[in-house]
């Protein structure tokens, strides 16, 4: 067994210190070490987006990120996203637009959508949303209602 690496980082706004194996992924750390299961494993190769998290303001596939590299950074998972005003809007929009079926891809979609809204704001049109979620696979919805939901959430309510 490899010696563990102790890292400290901000997780959903709270400082955390954990010890991880150097070859462990951020996805495994979140699910198995910390116990946050909103972030999903669905391919482990960065092809499906179910494990998307935001690190220092940018969305990443947590299955491709070494957990040790979280040291000193700020990580936001779906559990943290829904605690933000944009995340609340997104959650409501996903529910109301019918963007959720089996729901397994949904947390990754929510996090990626948060990243898109944060980085593109109200200029986020439907084509940009589709491009923005091309790394998030969904087998149930055909994406239409996911795009509807993100488009709705991108427009701040009066």
């Amino acid at each position: 067994m490899s010696p563990k690496v102790e890292i400290s980082f901000t997780l959903n706004g709270t400082e955390r210190t954990v010890a991880v194996a150097p070859d462990m992924s951020t996805l495994a750390m979140l699910r198995e070490v910390i116990g946050l299961t909103g972030t999903k494993y669905a391919c482990g190769e960065g092809e499906c987006g179910a494990c998307t998290v935001i690190v220092d303001g940018l969305s990443l596939n947590s299955c491709l990120m070494f957990a040790a590299d979280c040291d000193g950074r700020s990580v936001t998972t779906v559990e943290g996203v829904v605690d933000t005003p944009v995340g609340e809007r997104l959650r409501d929009a996903f529910v109301q637009a019918g963007a959720v079926q089996c729901g397994f891809c949904t947390p990754g979609m929510m996090v990626q959508a948060k990243h898109l809204i944060d980085s593109l704001g109200a200029s986020l049109d439907r084509e940009a949303i589709k491009r923005g979620i091309e790394g998030n696979l969904c087998r149930c919805t055909g994406y239409v209602k996911i795009v509807d939901a993100i488009a709705a959430a991108a427009q701040p309510k009066e």
């Binding site: 960065g46 987006g49 998307t52 940018l58 969305s59 990443l60 596939n61 491709l64 990120m65 990626q112 990243h115 898109l116 491009r131 923005g132 979620i133 091309e134 790394g135 998030n136």
Partner: peptide, 9 residues
């Protein structure tokens, strides 16, 4: 290149 998430990393 790949996806938004991968381009970010």
């Amino acid at each position: 290149f790949a996806s938004s998430q991968i381009r970010n990393a």
